[in-house]
């Protein structure tokens, strides 16, 4: 049975994530309402504008349903999605799910002209990882028990804790599928431990 992975599709780069999931043999499902969270093996929250996503989440108990989902099921947040997962958000201060013990600063590396494609060693096997940063947030603090898998200078950019994964860059815009594969492995692991 292929894994069914939801992609939060309120706004942003949801199609790019769905494409990568499909390439990796998972079944992506676009999620626009709280009901659509049901029956998913895991969820990806894409990049985009976190303020816009929060606005849409205000409707019909979606925020609460999402909080309950990420507390239980594997979830991967990229960029705006990572901001949603965090425990606190600076510039500007805004609501977040508080699921992953990290502090995040929005747009901390500058505006679009400062967006960059960088490459760095990671704790994943294989060559250095290409990382596409677009108006990226900065992880300014990681809590105990949060593992840093990749860095940009001194800043963590790919972190994991339990069944939660967060990246401040955009693996969905890169040809390198290792980060998505890592997430699918996490989903499979979580199912094994359930059984």
């Amino acid at each position: 049975m292929p894994l069914t992975i939801g992609v939060l599709a309120l706004q942003g780069a949801f199609e790019a994530h769905a494409r990568v999931l499909q390439n990796l043999g998972a079944t992506p499902k676009l999620v626009r309402t709280p009901e659509q969270l049901e029956g998913l093996d895991g969820l990806i929250m894409p990049g985009g504008e976190s303020t816009t996503m929060l606005k849409s989440l205000e409707r019909g108990g979606f925020f609460e349903a999402l909080a309950a989902f990420v507390a239980e099921k594997p979830t991967f947040g990229t960029c705006a999605g990572a901001i949603l997962l965090a425990t606190d958000v600076a510039h500007s201060t805004q609501k977040c799910l508080g699921a992953l013990d990290i502090s995040v600063e929005r747009n901390a590396y500058g505006r679009q002209n400062e967006s960059a494609i960088l490459s760095s060693e990671t704790s994943m096997p294989g060559a250095p990882l290409e990382m596409v940063f677009i108006r990226a947030p900065r992880i300014s603090r990681v809590g105990p028990g949060v593992e840093t898998l990749a860095k940009r200078g001194d800043d963590p950019v790919l972190v994991r804790s339990g069944s939660l994964l967060a990246a401040t860059f955009h693996p969905e815009l890169s040809g390198d599928e290792r980060v998505h594969r890592l997430f699918l492995d996490m989903v499979e692991d979580s199912q094994r431990s359930y059984r």
Binding site: Q11, A13, G48, E49, C79, A80, Q112, S115, V132, L173
Partner: peptide
């Protein structure tokens, strides 16, 4: 990078 930002503005 340019189309990347456009991706973020979708939807």
């Amino acid at each position: 990078l340019k189309t990347g930002l456009a991706e973020m503005l979708k939807g």
